[in-house]
């Protein structure tokens, strides 16, 4: 068996240690080693955005990051977006705006949207579409997602 590496990270604010093989992606570590299955795999090569997580303030497709690269990193996944039983305004906007159908892309969209709104609290429609262009959704045609992001921006400004 391949020798495993000990990786120390912070995930959703909590210290997390895990062992991983050199060939395992961060996505595989999150899902299969740590058990955080909210981050989804749609393609395995960085093109669908379903596995989007935030590492040290930057959103990345976790299928293109090796588990060992997460050493010392602070990672935010969908499981860390809500504050306990209080949903984040972005989650509420997606829910109430019917911005999901099958829901498999939703965690990635929410992580990407959160990074956008933290950087740009009042994005234009074009800026939203540009920012979310690496997240594929096959169900919604994006209309309600764009509207949900606009709604979330408003909720966050009013909060």
């Amino acid at each position: 068996m391949t020798t495993k590496t000990h990786v120390q990270t912070t995930i959703n604010g909590e210290p997390v240690d895990f062992l991983c093989e050199p060939r395992q992606s961060l996505l595989e570590c999150l899902r299969d080693v740590i058990g955080l299955t909210g981050t989804k795999e749609g393609c395995g090569d960085g093109n669908c955005g379903a596995c989007t997580v935030n590492i040290d303030g930057r959103i990345v497709t976790s299928c293109l990051v090796l588990g060992v690269e997460a050493q010392g990193a602070s990672i935010e996944t969908i499981e860390g977006v809500a504050d306990g039983t209080n949903l984040h305004p972005i989650q509420l906007a997606f829910l109430e705006g019917a911005a999901l159908q099958c829901g498999i892309c939703t965690p990635g969209f929410i992580i990407a949207t959160k990074a956008l709104l933290e950087k740009n609290p009042d994005p234009t429609e074009h800026e939203i579409r540009f920012w979310l262009a690496n997240n594929l959704c096959r169900c919604t045609g994006y209309d309600k997602i764009v509207r949900a992001v606009q709604d979330a921006a408003k909720r966050m400004q009013e909060a």
Binding site: K40, I78, Q91, L95, G103
Partner: peptide
């Protein structure tokens, strides 16, 4: 009318179990 879907919270929090998530 337009109620919030019953499975919605699980799907915006990453709790919903899809086929690949089954263990």
């Amino acid at each position: 009318t337009r109620p919030v879907r019953h499975d919605g919270v699980d799907k915006v929090t990453g709790r919903a179990i899809y086929g690949a998530d089954y263990d």
